[in-house]
Design a binder for these strands. Structure first.
Ligand SMILES: [Mn+2]
Ligand SMILES: [Mn+2]
Ligand SMILES: [Zn+2]
Ligand SMILES: [Zn+2]
Lengths: 149, 149
DNA sequence: ATTGAAAATGAATATTATTATCATTAGAGA
DNA sequence: TCTCTAATGATAATAATATTCATTTTCAAT
């Protein structure tokens, strides 16, 4: 789904809720839809202010919360104390592996793991609705540097 | 390992670092060692103040940080904004499944999943050092209530 | 095009968990 | 017992996020 489609989706979601479209909201959403990183609120605010310097902190917070609720953005917590957002992946959900030295993030998806998760949950009487799985370790670059040091 | 053993371990760790034993610290640690839940700082402070009402917030924070560093406590973040601590499980590490209705927590360990995690990471050039895996869903009780409603 | 109710904005303030500061107290080796 | 150093607890500081509120903007109805 391209940014324009997403703007339409958002528009539909908003009119369904009686929300109004504004230039700030549109610009923040569009800017976000064009990112392909795990962006923090602060980074997004910076990006957005390059063009619209009047935009406030609160509006970025509010807009990303809205995108999150509407299912057009995913919020992620990687343990550095800041919430990050990413666009919905085209190929379904994925999990993350994060380098504990340089913070580089790689993504993966493993249906076998998820089947085993459901199975483990079932044994305990639970039904899984969603999950959070993050691996922490060294990326290839940082592992090399470690060996050299 | 029982509470008394843990107190010894802690004592050893502290003397190794030139730290002093105090009645507050000892009581907080001992109280924690006797819990078998995922306890928040606030809950622990409450417990501890039942006997020693003078104990300050900061001392509980500092003590739990110390236990965490010494490897005698595990800190957990389950997404409710509060850090929780649990005792080291006797049978190695485990992951969690949390009911999104009543917050009940179950624990599980699945070596097969962890092997697959390492494998997935390896494909991306990463080496896994640790991981965080939480499943969210409905416990048996809450699933039943849902069906009845 | 005008109007008016409802929603959005941005600045400022509040909240919440956690950490740091600092004057005072207490532990423990000499 | 002295004395040095760490620990304590009250309080203030931080940092991310949420809320408040006066003002502005949107948009459906006129
Ligand atoms: Mn991602
Ligand atoms: Mn546990
Ligand atoms: Zn790296
Ligand atoms: Zn439940």
């Amino acid at each position: 789904m391209n940014p324009a489609n997403k703007m339409e989706q958002l528009s539909a979601y908003m009119s369904g809720k009686g929300l109004k479209s504004t230039s700030q909201r549109d610009y923040i959403a569009d800017t976000f839809f064009r990112t392909n990183t795990h962006i923090s609120l602060e980074e997004l605010l910076g990006k957005v202010r390059r063009k619209h310097k009047g935009i406030g902190y609160a509006t970025v917070y509010r807009t990303m919360k809205l995108l999150s609720e509407s299912g057009l953005a995913l919020s992620r917590q990687f343990g550095d104390g800041q919430t990050r957002y990413e666009n919905l992946p085209a190929d379904g959900h994925h999990d993350h592996i994060i380098c504990i030295k340089c913070s580089k993030i790689a993504e993966f998806h493993n249906p076998k793991i998820e089947a085993l998760q459901s199975e483990a949950a079932k044994k305990l009487g639970y039904t899984v609705v969603n999950h959070k799985m993050e691996l922490y370790g060294y990326c290839a670059d940082c592992a090399v540097k470690d060996r050299e040091a």
